[in-house]
């Protein structure tokens, strides 16, 4: 493998990391509040707003049922309006974020719904406002679950980010297609796949480690 190809691989890996990191951060920024709202706004819940809950739930479901590759193409005008172009890493972040947001929202919603209702009751009895309950109790108690959810989201985004390579994004997917497939360089293709596998393994392990670290439910015999 030539030095040229190696530097291409490094560059593509960094581009993938950038796209995944940016869309994870943005997706969490939008997905976390959305998930919290979905988890607390059914009838009789803390932020009881059944109608808004229904509508947002439908939108989230709709967004999640569009295949990613179609989403990328369908929102090209929107992407162009937002970042001025529809190709490159910055452009890829738009569909990645749009795919990540509802996904993360649902994961956050599930984690929060698993928090014991008794804790909400206890906090209400303490005189907490709904916002305090969300901030100090629900999110804190759901944190290990949210961490595992985010790990799952990052792993999916690594896969998605490779897909945007097919439609003018950059990164490992783009490299794999242009060199590995179109110029038929199987060693490049192999290297791309290997790097992706390592990335996914790494993310999964680190995510699980963090989730275990923040979880105080199991007796602490992890040593520290």
């Amino acid at each position: 493998m030539s030095a040229n190809v190696i530097s291409l691989l490094i560059e593509a890996t960094l581009q993938t990391c950038y796209m995944v990191a940016a869309s994870t951060i943005l997706g969490t920024l939008f997905g976390l509040p959305l998930g919290v709202f979905l988890a607390t706004s059914q009838r009789g819940e803390l932020l009881s707003a059944p109608l808004v809950n229904k509508v947002l739930g439908l939108i989230v479901n709709a967004a999640r049922s569009v295949p990613f590759i179609i989403l990328v193409v369908a929102i090209i005008p929107f992407t162009r309006a937002l970042v001025g172009t529809s190709i490159g890493t910055n452009a890829a972040i738009v569909p990645l974020t749009i795919a990540a947001t509802p996904f993360i929202a649902r994961l956050v919603e599930n984690s929060i719904r698993e928090v014991d209702a008794g804790l909400i009751e206890a906090s209400r009895a303490m005189g907490a406002t709904p916002f305090q309950i969300i901030r100090k109790v629900l999110i804190r108690e759901a944190l290990p679950g949210i961490m595992l959810g985010l790990t799952l989201a990052v792993v999916s985004l690594i896969g998605y980010s490779a897909m945007v390579g097919a439609v003018g994004g950059e990164g490992l997917g783009d490299l794999g297609i242009r060199y590995g497939y179109q110029r038929f360089m199987p060693d490049v293709m192999l290297a791309v796949v290997a790097i992706l596998i390592v990335m996914v393994q790494l993310v999964q392990s680190v995510g699980e480690w963090i989730a275990a670290r923040v979880d105080k439910r199991a007796a602490r015999n992890r040593g520290h």
Binding site: L119, E121, E141, K216, R217
Partner: peptide, 8 residues
């Protein structure tokens, strides 16, 4: 059932 915050 005590209703303590498990993470605190």
């Amino acid at each position: 059932h005590f209703n303590l915050m498990a993470q605190r």
